[in-house]
Amino acid sequence: MAEEQHFTIRPACAADIEPIIRLDAAVTTTPKPAYWEALFKDCQSRRKQHFLLVAVKDDVLLGFIAGEIRAWEFGSPPCGWVFAIAVDPNTRLSGMGADLFQAICDAFRRAGITKVRTMVARDAQLVMSFFRAQGMMAGPFVELEKDLDE
């Protein structure tokens, strides 16, 4: 188990994008720089709806979480969505992921939101267990999909 870490959580700034891209690529094995750059721009232009928070220790970015407030999609009243979270593998089990999650929930609360949602691949047991440990349960929606070449 990693030692107790002392880190700061704050909104991402432009200098964080490169380390976010690197950390995401390391964790997901799929580099997507254009996606993160666009997401950062969205966060800058819609600060009350889009959130990209980072966890930093000694000026080194070790984790981030991204989410936004969506309203009336699929008939749902406004709610917070978490669509990405990553913590440096060497920093896991330090509570950083839980603190990032709490920080984005606090941001949603400040915006008047009372519900947070996410979507996780069924076989992503580690990520699913993490969100379960934060108190998340199955919601009232079921994700459906279809191959378009059928």
């Binding site: 069924r122 047991q125 699913m128 267990s129 379960r132 440990a133 108190g135 349960m137 199955a138």
Partner: peptide, 22 residues
């Protein structure tokens, strides 16, 4: 059954204790 398996695999004893407290 896949959904049931994913749910049961994602809930640890620690999480169950939290749910029980709630």
């Amino acid at each position: 059954e896949d959904t049931a398996r994913a749910t049961l695999s994602s809930i640890t004893i620690d999480t169950m204790l939290k749910i029980a407290r709630r």
